[in-house]
Nucleic acid binder design. Sequence first.
DNA 1: TAATTTTTTGCAATCGTTTACAAATTCATT
DNA 2: AATGAATTTGTAAACGATTGCAAAAAATTA
Lengths: 333, 333
Amino acid sequence: MSVNIKDVAKKSGVSTATVSHVINGTRFVSDVTKQKVQKAMVVLNYHPNLIARSLRCKKSKTIGLIVPTVNEGAPDFFYMSVAQGIQHYIKKQGYHLIFSNYNNECDEEEQIQVFNTKCIDGLILAPTNDLREKVRNHTLFGDYPIVYVDRKMRNQPGDTILIDNQEGVFEAIQHMIHKGHTRIGFISAERGENTSDEHFQGYLKALSKYGISIDSNLIKSGPSNFETGVQLTRELLESQKVTALFIANNTLTMGAIHYLQHKNIDIPNDLAVIGYDDYEWTKVTTPFLSVIKQPAFEVGEKAAEILLSKINKQNSDYHDYRLKPYFISRESC
Amino acid sequence: MSVNIKDVAKKSGVSTATVSHVINGTRFVSDVTKQKVQKAMVVLNYHPNLIARSLRCKKSKTIGLIVPTVNEGAPDFFYMSVAQGIQHYIKKQGYHLIFSNYNNECDEEEQIQVFNTKCIDGLILAPTNDLREKVRNHTLFGDYPIVYVDRKMRNQPGDTILIDNQEGVFEAIQHMIHKGHTRIGFISAERGENTSDEHFQGYLKALSKYGISIDSNLIKSGPSNFETGVQLTRELLESQKVTALFIANNTLTMGAIHYLQHKNIDIPNDLAVIGYDDYEWTKVTTPFLSVIKQPAFEVGEKAAEILLSKINKQNSDYHDYRLKPYFISRESC
DNA sequence: TAATTTTTTGCAATCGTTTACAAATTCATT
DNA sequence: AATGAATTTGTAAACGATTGCAAAAAATTA
């Protein structure tokens, strides 16, 4: 792989400038020389060195991605889909993705530092809470555009791609109401994060739209893990009479479903259920689970689209973009 | 980001050579100048440009990864874990990963071409059948080391990291036999791929070790999808009397479990079950599913380890490495 | 044919590092 | 103080592309 532009130039009897212009179409070259050059390129099996090109042009055609693709040991499917969406979009434009998943916050900062030296053209980042604080002081980022996904970064310029969490929950609850349910349980991750808060808002909005009063006994929340899902579901069902249950988090949904199956509760007759995230396991349950599906892949695509448009200076003002989740109606409600 | 080594040199009153040597520790520099240089670097917030370095050193500290992380629209968790394993290992060594997932074979070839121009230091590749044929003719690869994962590439030099498929199945079946089962159903993906063939060998090996005769009626295979899993399980259970069932493929396992839950079959009393791949959904089923877990993360780590050792010329002969799956004993068998 | 315009190409600097080679400085020795 | 050895630094050429500027070649015109 050590054949370079000079070799091609020599072989075809022209200057490197001409070869370069043939490659990039950046100025007129007569047909006859163009063909000489092209022939030389295939004969020598020449491929331009992108590193040299990057150095000269100060464009690497590479974007960085920093997301937690692994969460407490387990792979985080949401961010994986985001990554795939990005990949899908940028590939078409000849861009590359170098990616890096962080495990803790200190790590995250370090990753950004590394990316800075890599001359990335842009960055897609899912910021932790911690990072939001830190970045206020340091000059952490280089002078490339940044797009944030899933979480907002208030004190920093940049676009943000978000999920319309409220709308997703609203639709699900509304669907339940249309089916005649009025006592609807709601389980979510701990309040405080903007995602769970928005979920809760969606729940309230739907109930109030249809004039159903809020019963705080039907509302539970806790840390996002399997056991809590089991636990909260048990607490809810043992103490309250509900005809429908919405769980606003995938891991909690798994716990809930496990409990319900274990207790042989007839879904949807005894209890209608809508869960969160359309992962593979929702197709194993009996009956198949209706869910709110987050448009993770689309988030990735959108992030990539916005980022590339920023890189190419096609627009310069910052926006938040909210993508609507899908309600996937299967058999559980 | 336009502060470069010259700026540092000027600021600290030394030559760029000295700065470079301070950065890399490549020759002796007196303490006093070393400190001047280091101070200038922090004051200016200097970070060496890795692209320039790559160009000069012909080392990019970047490795490429080409795997099908998306398979028929659905994310492929196996390769995702592989990717994470790689990531985990190379990060510690200061390497980066650029990755690319292919959807069809022609795409795969193209991706390799692109990587060649990126000056990757090494490549990790899950080759398709198709690629194995193609590569015979072309000079497709650059002169970097290559490590193959999951599938062998016979006509090309390189190491291969494989899973000991036979051993995994053997252990599972043996476990069933120890529990007293003799009529053990076996469902796998279509024969022909070396993975399914190895699965089948494991089944045969276990049965013959314990002197259990082979009954071809208990052996089913078909394309890897949910419906086939349902279908084959039904066929097996309706026609044969079996007390245990092993499914050597995750998607087929999902179908099987769905059928069994739907039919209200008592696991493990009516039927003991061991499935394939320890994905999240195995913890939703009632009872929790015992599985053969493929060491995907470890495959990634091992691939990275071997590749980096090749890049650093620490060894030069090619090997196949076979990693043993884990048998995870839960409640279904 | 000479002058002028148009078409087509080449020269050489540049991007930011690393590194072979050599030069300057310091130190010890006589 | 002059010499040589040891220590410490600097100069400048790479790496492989792109591109502003200008020159050569061809075509047109007078």
